Amino acid sequence: MLKWLLCLFKPRPNRFIQLLIQQAEYTEKGVNALVEYLDNPSEEHAHAVKQMEKEADEIRRILIDELNRTFVTPIDREDIFSLSRAVDDVLDYAYTTVDEMLILEVQPNSFLRRMGSLLRDSAHEVHLGVQRLADHPGVAEDHAVRAKALENRIETVYREAIADLFHRPQDVEHVVEMLKLREIYRHMSNAADRGDEAANILSDIVVKMT
């Protein structure tokens, strides 16, 4: 009887937080696959990024459906939607990075590997932040701050990479290669920007919760 009563009054897990955690988890896995691709370009690793992107998109569709069918949400619905979109964008850019590298026949270099490694760390911090949001918002804020710091480091590498491009062109062939790499670098930078936005939204949610 006591066990039944405890189950009855036990707080139910927040459905939206659960979905956001799942989405952040798939995003982290997808970025991990991106890093593996940058270390060892292969169809297997490229497919892994694409698969994670599909799985994350499905979670986002479910989350939006839940939002549309729920009148009262535990967190502002705008924040839920915006956080989900920002996390989704990170993985979208990870996928387009790989996709365009394949299309443009661009090989990974040290700049891409450095940005990929930092992006992986950022995705991990966002994932942890979402996990801690419900029960430990202060810890979630710490992870958001770390994610933002990592975005700054990615942007530093991005600027170094762009500067290196403009020092190298010697002929038309080099210019074409420069344009290809600049496009890929931009995708990585955009992924970092969206990770930064996810961290900002996490921080906003924490402020509203505390």
Rank of each mutant, 00 (worst) to 15 (best):
I75R: 10
E53S: 08
L63E: 06
A140T: 01
D88R: 00
H47A: 15
L5K: 06
P108C: 15
V90Y: 00
Q131T: 07
A161S: 12
I17W: 08
V126A: 03
R182M: 13
F81S: 08
L8G: 03
A163K: 15
E78H: 15
H47L: 14
I21T: 10
Y93T: 07
N68E: 10
N109Q: 13
F111P: 01
V176T: 10
N200Y: 06
I59N: 00
G116T: 10
V31K: 04
L102C: 10
P13C: 06
R85W: 07
A163H: 15
E25Y: 10
D89A: 12
Y93M: 10
A147H: 00
Q107H: 14
I80S: 01
T27D: 01
A46C: 11
E183D: 15
G30R: 04
L119V: 07
D57K: 08
S122V: 02
E44Y: 07
R159P: 06
S203R: 10
P108S: 12
G129W: 01
G129Q: 03
L202S: 02
R77F: 12
A191P: 05
D65K: 12
Q18S: 14
F166N: 10
S84W: 02
V130P: 04
K180F: 13
V206L: 02
A198S: 09
S203E: 14
G195I: 00
V35K: 07
D121W: 09
H127R: 11
L67Y: 03
L165K: 03
E53D: 13
L5N: 03
I21S: 08
D193F: 11
E25R: 12
T70H: 09
N152I: 11
D99T: 09
V145S: 08
M52V: 02
L38R: 03
E173L: 15
L112P: 01
V157S: 05
F166K: 14
Q18T: 09
E155R: 10
S110W: 13
T70Q: 11
M178F: 06
E36I: 01
R186G: 15
E25D: 12
R61V: 03
L112V: 05
P41M: 13
L202V: 08
I64V: 15
H124G: 07
E36M: 07
H167N: 09
P137R: 00
L34M: 14
L202C: 05
D135T: 12
N109G: 14
Q107W: 08
L8P: 00
V31G: 06
R120G: 06
Y93D: 03
R61I: 05
L34G: 02
F166L: 15
S42D: 05
V90M: 13
